[in-house]
Nucleic acid binder design. Structure first.
Lengths: 213, 213
DNA sequence: GTCGGTATCTGAATAGTGTTCAGATTATGG
DNA sequence: CCATAATCTGAACACTATTCAGATACCGAC
């Protein structure tokens, strides 16, 4: 899709005094520095310097440093959702096999994102960004994609109705937890594929009228 | 040897100049401040002041602030394991029912810990403490307790051998992920009991010779 | 008991931080 | 074209982590 463009002004961004789109530039610079230094250890002044602007200029766009970090988080959630969307687009088809592959790839993308940039992952889930609507994932693209994947698994008979009920919850929490535990060194990297295997098995629970209540 | 300055050596803490056990006092004070302010926003000077000591005194026990925070993390992991041990001790018995209750309570304790003190939970899993032996959970008490719980579930016929294989991985990651997502506001608090229900169902997968390969 | 050595802690200093605010600079609407 | 608003600067303030020379209290040995 298109990038967040410079729509504010109708002319081209100046290079001299006025920056053009300082807000976005600050977010990008902050993202870059967080990737290197971690969400703690981020310096507001370093962000300003990277953009080539005075530290006080930041306060025209963000009330404080934490707000800037929070905005970085917003951007990261969008980026992750886009990456997941792209991953899903690579696996078309309505077969059970395709649905299973999509489901796996959705989790893998989540984990790869976390594992490639631990500091950005920590920023997203380390209490640095304030979630606006608590526990409300309507309109959350990533959640909707997961829902779609699970619906496909149900429609193709891969998972049972009883398991479908817990699909989002179980998948999201397990993938999220595995990402955290691997990134923080509590589990080896190879554990993630094992987890996906375990999730596949788990999701088949309740199938075949598995009697035992 | 005179009586006056003898016996006081290793036992009692001094109150005057020498603190007695400054190292532990600093860790405790840091823990207390992190609970209030979060792992970022922790001030070394505030820690020193709370103990009633000069900021530079800290550097006799820790090379820098991050090391102090890391030591707080070590303590928290021990505390969590102890809390889980106590929770398990309340539910004795070798029946399937007891084993199921223990398994559930183990996850609940993990989550309660996270949910009651979000800032401490963030300290543990937010990249603030350096894990010594990466991905090696031999000797990790919490992990051993989980293993024991799962063995009991297998022995009492609650879970299948095929599912047992993924028991630790699936349980730990799901509970960890749910704790994070709830603490950070992405899921409502009530979702955790739902997750435990889903986990119960998932764990029964592979039981009853559930044919479908 | 006194003395020397050592571990422990202080005080001051340095460099860097987030944040505020009066004012300089530039762009824009009337 | 000018007044007004938007944008950014520079200096200042209080605070931070960290270093280091030196003061203080303890310890074991004499």
């Amino acid at each position: 899709m298109s990038i967040t463009n410079v729509v504010r002004r109708k002319r081209v961004a100046r290079e001299n005094y006025h920056h053009g789109d300082l807000e976005a530039a600050l977010i990008d610079a902050a993202l870059d520095l967080v990737r290197q230094t971690g969400p703690d250890h981020l310096s507001l002044r370093a962000v300003a310097q990277q953009v080539g602007v005075s530290p006080s200029a930041v306060y025209h766009y963000f009330p404080d440093k934490d707000s800037l970090i929070s905005r970085v988080g917003d951007k990261l959630f969008i980026d992750l959702a886009n990456m997941q969307r792209e991953a899903l687009a690579q696996i078309p088809g309505i077969s059970a096999r395709a649905a299973k592959l999509r489901y796996r790839e959705l989790g893998r993308t989540y984990f790869r994102w976390a594992n490639k940039e631990p500091n950005l992952f920590r920023l997203m889930f380390g209490g640095f960004c304030k979630i606006e609507r608590e526990g409300d994932h309507q309109g959350n693209d990533a959640f909707l994609m997961l829902t779609k994947c699970l619906d496909d698994l149900l429609d193709t008979g891969v998972i049972s109705k009883s398991m479908r009920k817990y699909g989002e919850l179980l998948s999201w929490t397990a993938v999220q937890g595995a990402s955290t535990l691997i990134v923080e060194g509590h589990l080896p990297e190879a554990a993630f594929e094992d987890l996906l295997d375990g999730l596949d098995l788990a999701m088949r629970a309740g199938n075949m009228r598995a009697g035992s209540k």
